[in-house]
């Protein structure tokens, strides 16, 4: 078991024949990901990377039984691509695209939420994220596969390369990961920390979770509340942006301290008070997880 992705996942790649889509789809295939179809409007009927290309996601799903969509469509068209995937009936939509207007995402999120209320739940991850990987089984994203190692630590993060740092360190410690989820650095994302923590809590293959947050918004504070009320597995928190000045956007559209909200201090305080183990030095993520789990095992 793992969350979101497994060996059985059947992927359709939207924006399959473009430069970025081709490059990363190839890497995913090399990792062993089961890509069953690609979609590029106007290229239907052709074959790319030995996989059939369709004009619409609807057709791709009907013909190949794809249940996960991986999106590399350019920002101006990406929100529509997400809606298309959801409409076609995939269970998981992973959107890598960076730079989607926030209002577009607000509209997408409302549609997905309404669909969930009506009983059809589509899980969206991203946008502006490295994707999702279940090591050794399925890689749906742009992360370097080889730094991962099958294991029992779940990782969820708002940032890309910082995730790699946590992955690398936990691999070095011999721990490995169950699933690694990049939820993305935008103000509005398909899944937030709480959504993914809930999945990890229910996943028998996950023993503990590393959660990498950053300044801006209140997703980490919400996660702290969720942890206190609903979680039994240990969670390790890292918050980037302690040294960032307020009012300046640090690369991610979501990483900004506005009106005194979303500060590093408030997030660390909320997590600590909830009982999350906050790792202050980024260099010690792996070592801290290993130490705490070992102690727990010996008790």
């Amino acid at each position: 078991m793992s969350i979101l992705l497994s060996k059985e996942s059947r992927l359709v790649v939207q924006g399959f024949t473009g430069g970025t889509g081709t490059f990363h789809a190839k890497q995913c295939l090399e990792y062993g990901t089961n890509i069953v179809a690609g979609v590029t409007p106007g290229r239907g009927g052709t074959v790319h990377l030995d996989r059939p290309v369709f004009n619409t996601v609807f057709e791709a799903v009907r013909q190949t039984g794809a249940d996960v969509s991986l999106i590399f469509v350019p920002a101006p068209f990406a929100a529509d691509a997400v809606l298309e995937a959801a409409d076609a009936g995939v269970a998981v939509v992973i959107c890598i695209t960076e730079g989607i207007p926030v209002l577009d995402m607000a509209r997408v999120k409302r549609v997905l939420d309404a669909s969930a209320r009506a009983g059809v739940r589509v899980r969206m991850v991203g946008p502006n994220c490295p994707g999702v990987i279940t090591p050794g089984e399925c890689k749906a994203g742009i992360m370097p596969g080889y730094i991962h190692k099958p294991g029992r630590i779940g990782i969820v993060s708002r940032s890309g390369t910082l995730t790699y740092e946590a992955v690398y360190q936990t691999s070095q410690q011999g721990l490995g990961q169950s699933t690694v989820v990049g939820i993305g650095g935008d103000p509005i994302t398909g899944s937030n920390f709480v959504d993914i923590l809930e999945l990890f809590e229910g996943d028998p293959a996950t023993d503990a979770v590393v959660m990498i947050g950053e300044i801006g918004g209140s997703a980490e504070e919400d996660a702290a509340r969720f942890y206190r009320e609903r979680m039994t597995k240990p969670v390790f928190g890292v918050i980037a942006g302690r040294s960032a000045p307020s009012g300046r956007r640090m690369g991610h559209a979501g990483a900004i301290i506005e009106g005194g909200l979303g500060t590093h201090a408030s997030k660390v305080k909320a997590l600590r008070e909830a009982g999350v183990i906050v790792v202050k030095n980024l260099n010690e993520i792996g070592a801290t997880v290993a130490r705490v789990l070992k102690k727990k095992a010996s008790v």
Binding site: S159, L162, E165, I212, V238, R242, G251
Partner: peptide, 23 residues
């Protein structure tokens, strides 16, 4: 490379007693 790691690097510099000149 990467916004999160860039912020994380700045934080680590501060933790080590220095101050970053930029993000």
């Amino acid at each position: 490379n990467g916004a999160g790691l860039a912020m994380g690097t700045m934080d680590t510099i501060v933790l080590a007693g220095g101050r970053p000149a930029n993000f």
